[in-house]
Design a protein around this nucleic acid. Structure first.
Lengths: 184, 184
DNA sequence: GCTCTTACCTAGTAGGTACTAAGTAAGGAT
DNA sequence: ATCCTTACTTAGTACCTACTAGGTAAGAGC
């Protein structure tokens, strides 16, 4: 019974990582605190001690993601629209689990009752706004921004379903030529 | 307690309709037989009498959708690729609930453990194949087909999240010009 | 070595989960 | 008017759900 007692930061990181994987597999509605606790080697109240509630756990995961994303965007120079998109796709291609987390939660959270509904609404708005700004040199930048987001989300779904057939980076490059013009 | 006793076909249709709505809201993992039963004015074993199990219920919903889709495709003349896509989008714009059902299940069923995993894999494959055939006149028809599916799925997600801002049909028309060429 | 914070536990609550077994009664067929 | 199929019920099983109250002991600071 002598379990190791981790410092709070480490334990929280472990809980967030485990939960990320489980939500990617089962969604938030299918997530059980028991599974989280088991995979962390804790009891359920042990997990709740750190995150307060199941909703709190979800927000912890999303906030962690937000931080990671900001960090990643910051370290990459703010190049052209096309370069930025390619960088995002290359990064996503390396972390299918997290892409799946977002794919599942994005669909689940469409309903206003979902605890992440507002979070995803705000994120979507922010993303489209940022892309629209980058798309200023193109005609109809707002429309282009929506198409970029749509194509990325859609291609990611196909890639997640069948990674051996669909090459995310290659499919995106083909799509980018269509979106931004056929310059080689 | 004198409940009306419906003929099996009617009751099944009601159960399928109610479940369609509930899965769109909560996903399959979040679906409870109790909710289905309540919304049908039945008890849980009453529902199970018709569908056998929760998985059976999901398959009943999906098979019903399959039939409806086949019917709708059959009644529309098999025009050009562009016309076909536009018809699909116009139809989807009229039934957001069903589009949401597919959006949620498509993401949830990415994991092989999901009871609809194979169903959605087969559907995806079939859809891409059909679109690829229609896209024969274009260069790289297979790539184009994937892009069509991706754009539709992605635009639908944006539309479902904020129907008042995103006009599905208009967004698709703009996307179609980009995909198929700028002919007016 | 002692103290004190706190990470984590045990025990319990109140309720929901899918599903089964067996019986009742509605309503069409004769 | 009676029968018989079957839609649907009640009752019950075995288990999982998030969450709380209160206590124990691990390990850092002195």
């Amino acid at each position: 019974m002598a379990r190791s007692r981790l410092p709070v930061a480490d334990r929280r990181r472990q809980i967030v990582e485990v939960t990320t994987r489980l939500i990617a597999e089962r969604g938030f509605w299918g997530l059980s605190m028991q599974d989280v606790a088991d995979d962390c080697g804790l009891t359920v109240p042990g997990v709740l001690h750190h995150v307060g509630s199941k909703d709190g756990l979800l927000l912890a995961v999303l906030d962690h993601r937000d931080l990671e994303d900001k960090r990643s965007v910051a370290e990459q120079a703010p190049g052209t629209l096309r370069e930025t998109c390619a960088a995002v796709v290359r990064r996503n291609a390396l972390q299918p689990e997290i892409v799946r987390l977002f794919a599942v939660l994005e669909a689940e959270s469409l309903t206003p009752e979902h605890p992440a509904h507002e979070w995803f609404g705000a994120r979507q708005e922010r993303t489209v706004a940022e892309l629209t700004a980058l798309a200023a040199p193109f005609p109809a930048p707002g429309v282009l921004a929506r198409q970029i987001v749509a194509l990325m989300d859609g291609l990611q779904l196909q890639w997640l379903r069948d990674p051996s057939t669909v090459d995310l980076v290659a499919e995106w490059e083909a799509a980018a030529e269509r979106l931004f013009g056929d310059s080689t």
